[in-house]
Design a protein around this nucleic acid. Sequence first.
DNA 1: ACCCAGGTGGCCC
DNA 2: GGGCCACATGGG
Length: 212
Amino acid sequence: MLTRIYEELFEYFGEQNWWPAETEFEVIIGAILTQQATWKQVEKSIENLKKENLLSAKNLATGDVRHVQKLVRSSGFYKQKSKRIINLSKYLVGKYGGDLKKFFDKPVEELRKELLEMNGIGKETADSIILYAADKLIFPVDAYTFRIFERIGFISGKDYDNLQQLVQNELKKDLKIYGEFHALLVKLGKTFCKTTPVCGECPIKECEYRRN
DNA sequence: ACCCAGGTGGCCC
DNA sequence: GGGCCACATGGG
């Protein structure tokens, strides 16, 4: 069933090519900045950081908090987010010399646990980083994914690990497919499956919501 | 003017 | 373990 939905989405929306970033570090920063914010807002912040040459763990680790606050302001929650990306950078420099290859070089579960210990990194952010930056097989679940699968009638309630398992058990274990599926669900959510639904041209035929 | 966005952490029960 | 709430800018 999920594979079928994946194919419907891919056919309707086309390839999404996530994550939009030039470097692995940029994926990490973007993943934190985009929490409860739109990608448009994050793009501005990323651009600002890039101009100031702050998109590397070593440089950001020594960045001035007030300065970084101004640069990421557009992403919202800018005080906590600036503190968090600087702290994370310090950690990466302190423990891995800022070398992400070393940071990522461990089993998925170990990497996930390490990420979740960081302040400001929860399950979705951790899993996004693991999938899109570390290139390891794990499926990120976000608010759209919950909403869509709930309306389809596939789940009830918001159990992250449960939904993640459901997807991972059914979907072909392939990095490209995991990455595309997550991106396509976000695309679907933004387009048709908003808080107040606009089902109209939605490509998901098996959705319970439109039948009722 | 209100609602929402590619969440997370803290506090309460 | 679940149910609130603060965190904040910017677009519809």
